[in-house]
């Protein structure tokens, strides 16, 4: 999954989001070892300082932990990851609902559209 960094928002916050996304989607599986700060920064083409700050924040939040001798790892705590997943999902849906309402859909219409599309996708 390539890094998708937009130019008009702080890189730091975007990095946090992107890493959370990668953890939730399994790109960085539970308990796996993360590449070094330098490698990650190179991959994302960002400043190592900024990457370091993002990783530090994620560690603070408990999604990552550091083993002093061997580096950074994703947490093994499934519940924590699930919480993040839920939060991200919640944000996505909120944004989606806002946009749909802007288009003029009512809540009931939104549900219908979703059932049709999501249900339709399952049947394929």
């Amino acid at each position: 999954m390539p890094w998708d960094l937009k130019p008009d928002r702080p890189i730091y916050t975007q990095l946090i989001e992107q890493i959370e996304l990668k953890i939730c989607s399994g790109v960085y599986p539970l308990g796996s070892k993360l590449p070094s700060v330098r490698d990650l920064a190179q991959e994302a083409s960002v400043n190592p300082n900024t990457m370091q700050r993002a990783l530090a924040k994620l560690e603070e939040n408990g999604l990552l932990y550091t083993n002093r001798t061997s580096g950074r790892y994703v947490t093994e705590d499934i519940k924590m990851v699930q919480k993040v997943k839920d939060r991200l999902a919640h944000d996505l849906i909120q944004e989606f609902l806002q946009n749909m309402k802007r288009l003029g859909f009512s809540e009931k219409e939104i549900l219908t559209v979703i059932t049709k599309m999501a249900g339709g996708a399952e049947n394929e």
Binding site: P7, D8, R9, P10, I11, Y12, N47, T50
Partner: peptide, 9 residues
């Protein structure tokens, strides 16, 4: 950089 992006959007 982040201060600027944050403050000015």
């Amino acid at each position: 950089v982040d201060e600027i992006r944050d403050e000015s959007g």
